[in-house]
Write a protein that binds this DNA or RNA. Structure first.
Lengths: 148, 148
DNA sequence: TATTGTTATACTCTATAACTATA
DNA sequence: TATAGTTATAGAGTATAACAATA
């Protein structure tokens, strides 16, 4: 049966197939890496979206991550429950919540980021360092909004 | 608000974030490209998994795609309903179904593949041709099982 | 009227468990 | 006993619609 095992040449060239499985695998490795630090991969995404920027409203944080604002609510509920983020009413516009990392959130972010960096390096070890950096750069060009 | 819009430098370097959104966008473009031909992106995946290989059982087709055999059932139900694939009991092992593209399935595959190739080219136009090919090669190295 | 956060709800994709028929 | 296909079901992850508070 081994000759029928792999995806075959047609699938192997398909970008959706390749991106789907690369994402799936990297997400698995990330989950393994960050679970010991008390968050999952999606929660780490929220922490990253809040890191090193001006404090954001929930809606802004959702936009940075590319998810819906209704999805952000439950993620922040969980992170706030763990004491990793804080919500405060905005001083001038009381419809908004200002969302910020707590000290514990910054600690978790640092530890979890170190762990995912390690997981990324291991996953990318199949590539030359130059090809790995080129991969990241190319993905950024595809994903990031063109800065006009 | 525009200074808080993008993902920010931390997220922009995160591989899971980049792969997730690259996959999401490419999957959208693929759906747009193939819908006029009567299939969706996942169904095209099944057609690709069956293309140019020895006839496969449902389980083998699922393995090629990297999905569960129970997920394959509904996909084949749909494709068979459209007349794009056929299921026949295996001659020597009647537990198995031999799954094959019909003539109509091959026609659809060709048209849909042309359409997705065009969508891929447009999406990758943000990269140099060399970087685009390098991206595909690197993803293949990350995703495909090492051939030992 | 429009926007932010929220809730309820529903939809998509997927896998797990259990059944059946074959082996 | 084990495997291929099937079904029922449940769990993620996500978005849409509608509501309350505020602008």
């Amino acid at each position: 049966m081994s000759s029928s095992d792999g995806p075959g040449p047609e699938l192997s060239r398909n970008l959706v197939y390749l991106l789907k499985h690369a994402h799936l695998r990297m997400a698995e490795l990330t989950t393994e890496a960050v679970t010991p630090h008390g968050v999952d991969g999606r929660e780490l995404g929220v922490l990253l979206a809040l890191a090193g920027r001006e404090p954001a409203s929930q809606q802004q944080a959702a936009q940075r991550l590319g998810i819906d604002r209704t999805t952000m609510v439950a993620m922040l509920d969980a992170l706030e429950g763990k004491g990793l983020v804080s919500r405060h009413p905005h001083a001038e516009d009381r419809r908004r919540n200002v969302v910020e990392l707590t000290d514990a959130g910054r600690d978790t972010l640092r530890l979890a980021t170190d762990a995912t960096d390690k997981a990324e390096r291991e996953y990318l070890a199949a590539l030359t360092p130059k090809a790995a950096e080129q991969l990241r750069t190319s993905l950024q060009k595809l994903v990031l909004p063109p800065d006009d």
